[in-house]
């Protein structure tokens, strides 16, 4: 299979998996009761995957990027708005380029 076809197959599978996760919650609720144990697993996994991605990035990034990440976390904690948090992170990173 060519690299091009392989890439599109991968994109198609990504779309299929993501669509599956979009409909799975509602469909599962028609079939089963989500037990507290399953809910604990899903909730912790949802947090963990984000933490894992951030931790990997932090381990491989410099002071500028990690300061921006820390500020984004603080702004999110206060505002509960992803847009505000990301904007704050961008401002820190951009300002760093101008000032440092």
């Amino acid at each position: 299979m060519s690299a091009e076809a392989n890439a599109y197959l991968t994109i198609f599978l990504m779309a299929a998996v993501t669509y599956g996760t979009r409909i799975a919650g509602a469909e599962l609720m028609t079939l089963i009761r989500i037990t507290p144990r399953i809910e604990a697993f899903l909730k912790s996994m949802a947090v963990s995957v984000m933490v894992a991605i951030v931790a990997s990035a932090v381990a491989q990034s410099g002071f500028r990027e990690n300061t921006a990440t820390l500020v984004a976390a603080a702004v999110m904690a206060v505002t509960r708005s992803s847009i505000a948090a990301v904007t704050a992170g961008m401002v820190v990173a951009a300002a760093w380029n101008w000032l440092v």
Binding site: K43, A46, V47, M50, V51, I53, V54, A57, V58, S61, E65, A68, T69, A72, A73, V75, M76, A77, R80, S81, S82, A85, V86, A88, G89, M90, V91, V92, A93, A94, A95, N97
Partner: peptide, 18 residues
């Protein structure tokens, strides 16, 4: 423009939000 940190800042915000 700080666009390079958008991704990590976004993931961070979701982690904190959850």
């Amino acid at each position: 423009f700080g666009i390079d940190v958008v991704m990590v800042a976004f993931f961070t915000s979701i982690a904190v939000g959850q």
